[in-house]
Design a protein around this nucleic acid. Structure first.
Lengths: 327, 327
DNA sequence: CTGAAAGCGCTTACAG
DNA sequence: CTGAAAGCGCTTACAG
């Protein structure tokens, strides 16, 4: 049941059917009606695969999203998907576990399927992938991340500054023994570590490696990291946790250790996911403009796909969201 | 840069290139090597759009997922996507806001794009959509939901029984004034309401409409519903909340009202999302085998797409997960 | 084992 | 305003 059958039944050419289907050219009312009637009657559904082939565009975007900080990424994804969809694009999702090889696999997948553009939310440290990315002419936007050395447009906050500000916020509250829980080896995490160090150093406070614990941005890893920190016996009056999801685990660990947030220890998160406002205590956090990141990165991708150029870096501003978890 | 160019460059026919690309037939070693070398050299990427057209299958599945109970649906989605992807399928995601029309729009979209199958996680009450669904021969699995009157294979729990068991659990703890927060108008919610009623009735307890408040399965709606319940001044010793996400909002509302969970009021959630275990207090809940739902529904879809038949109903079992939110 | 050719279901210059 | 025909980039009987 293709356009040909519809054409035959309506007594017109396939060109005419195509035209009424797409509104690409004027078709006289009576022919249009006949065609529409046949389409209705036969329950004809246009084949966008065939159309994509001749048009050389699929109206589909690829989204590469890591399987961590789900709540945070999910929110960017939702917003971006909405924008893209309103613009007539479908979305193909690739959720990536954190292995170097996999991003490449997904990239190949998306390329083979001729997506019109890609929203990349997952950093990779595999230089081979970079090569491929540089070569391919496909529009790509980095959302929320930075890949140093890859000249692709980015929409994100200034992670160094945000972390610096977060640390200063805790210092301003009189905290002097600030633990840090995060994940290293990615530009985002590493920048945040630097911001933390800088703020400490400015405050003439020593940087104590024992106060730095790594997690993988899951709730459970936050809990484990905090347990480690507590067991270390280090003096601690606050912990800066580089994702709200980990912070949830951190607060649980504090509770299970018989301590109280914020009485015994203040907790400052990072990201600003919705659920933070509903926790007990509510989570203070360095809040990213998550929806704005989703929106702007999707719009940038839309521009790129239209052949327009976009600024290489869109820096959005973070805020400190207060909450009961610090005092 | 198509298969034709590669063929010319390697001095073979397009058929041969296609064969080495897909391994569909034996090709002599030397030809294979030549072809592979050219592919490598030219950075050729196969065009799956063209391939889909001739094969009449896209190796793509559609996922229709509601924009509520994100944490719950997200978990089904993750699992299902992993299974599907391992089987070589791509996933096209459609997130649906709760309007009657929209499911139809997405269904059309997926049909136009010739996905090989659909995982439907969103109920609709629009009978027109049902008609279309019945007519289309495309494999569809309902994951976590029931659409009465639509003979499509389902993978889910027994919501009536689960709600009944949850209510009995609270009754067993000595609760006699059990509020209920949920969303009605969908088979899942309505069944849970029935289970609650049945358990009360068995316990010779009156059903009090004033204790029933509706929410839309978002955190915020849970909070609002609980505020309403508290303001109503009704006697209340427990609240059964029909989604963990709403329960998070509920616990917040209790806290803000100056009351304590579980001392003043016990809270029992529904779903069993991961984060519930990390809340303070940890959330007791009627736990669905979420990953199992994702896994089994994806596998069922895989079977359907292979032309095999699947059982009309796969009923998975729920459990009561204990937590500090009840006493 | 390999190739020439038809065909998948559309869109769109090009004529009329 | 409408139609005949070429072509998008593949796969796969069908011959050889």
């Amino acid at each position: 049941m293709g356009i040909r059958e519809i054409a035959k039944e309506a007594g017109v050419s396939v060109a005419t059917v195509s035209r009424v289907l797409n509104g690409t050219k004027f078709v006289s009312e009576d022919l249009k009606e006949k065609v529409l009637a046949c389409i209705q009657k036969e329950g004809y559904v246009a084949n966008h695969v065939a159309r994509s082939m001749v048009l050389k565009k699929t109206l589909t975007c690829g989204l590469i999203i890591p399987e961590v900080s789900e709540l945070y990424h999910q929110m960017i994804f939702s917003t971006a998907e909405r924008i893209l969809e309103n613009a007539g694009y479908k979305v193909m999702v690739c959720r990536v576990k954190d292995t170097l090889a996999s991003v490449r696999v997904y990239l190949d997948l998306l390329l083979e399927n001729r997506v019109d553009g890609i929203l990349l939310m997952h950093e990779t440290s595999n230089p081979k992938v970079y090569e491929q990315l540089k070569k391919s002419q496909i529009p790509i936007i980095l959302a929320g991340i930075d890949i140093p050395g890859l000249p692709l447009p980015q929409v994100r906050i200034d992670d160094y500054q945000a972390s610096y500000d977060g640390t200063r916020y805790l210092l301003g509250l009189g905290k002097r023994h600030i633990g840090l829980i995060g994940g290293w080896g990615y530009s985002v995490g590493d920048k945040r570590l630097e911001g933390y160090k800088e703020a400490l150093s400015e405050a003439q406070l020593p940087f104590k490696p024992a106060l730095i614990v790594s997690g993988d941005y899951t709730v459970e890893s936050g809990k484990l990291a905090m347990q480690k920190l507590i067991e270390s016996g280090e003096n601690l009056d606050a912990v800066f946790v580089l994702s709200d999801e980990m912070a949830i685990g951190v607060m649980r660990a504090v509770k299970e250790a018989g301590l109280s947030v914020p009485h015994d220890i203040s907790i400052l998160g990072f990201d600003g996911i919705t659920v933070g406002k509903y926790l007990n205590p509510t989570l203070a956090t360095v809040s990213q403009p998550i929806e704005e990141i989703g929106l702007q990165s999707a719009e940038a991708l839309l521009h790129l796909m239209k052949g327009e150029s976009v600024r290489p870096l869109t820096l959005l501003s973070h805020t400190i969201r207060e909450g009961e978890s610090v005092q």
